[in-house]
Design a protein around this nucleic acid. Structure first.
Length: 139
DNA sequence: GCCAACGTTGGC
DNA sequence: GCCAACGTTGGC
């Protein structure tokens, strides 16, 4: 099992909208960045990820799960781009802000902090544990 | 709204 | 294959 982080601007697609999709999940379309795409290609069904609200909120608000492995992105004809499907698993009791992550020991190497522009990124098991604890949920 | 950081595009 | 120009992301 690997861990990831998915970014979305809540004005475009929010956690609540993701939750509304239920167990069926939602195609994580729109990624046009090779690194982010490659991360999605490395995902397996059942892998977990954090759901981060960029721009508005700037906080991790919940946990999602990969519900379909990477396949062609239906929003483009360009064969280069594909994406996974994800579904909401559970919300954080306490959202974990970017600000908190920046000062939290153990999170110094987080991609979220060091490469703020990558929209789909890996999370280490240790980072996963720390952030779940801060969020008030079981890892 | 600004702008730094970064990725992509395309001319040469 | 280099690199200047341009576009986008996302924190502030």
């Amino acid at each position: 099992m690997n861990y990831w982080l998915f970014k979305s601007e809540p004005d475009t697609w929010s956690w609540d909208q993701q939750v509304a999709r239920g167990a069926a999940g939602e195609e994580w379309h729109g990624v046009r960045n090779y690194q982010a795409r490659n991360n999605m290609r490395a995902m397996k069904i059942g892998d977990r990820g954090f759901y981060y609200h960029s721009n508005v909120g700037k906080e991790i608000v919940g946990i999602v799960e990969v519900s379909a492995e990477s396949a062609h992105d239906s929003t483009t004809d360009d064969p280069r781009w594909d994406c996974v499907h994800i579904r909401a698993v559970k919300p954080f009791v306490t959202p974990v802000t970017l600000e908190t992550c920046k000062v939290q020991p153990g999170l110094e190497k987080m991609v979220l902090i060091n490469n703020s522009r990558l929209s789909v990124q890996p999370v280490s098991p240790e980072e996963w544990r720390i952030i779940c604890e801060l969020g008030g949920v079981d890892p």
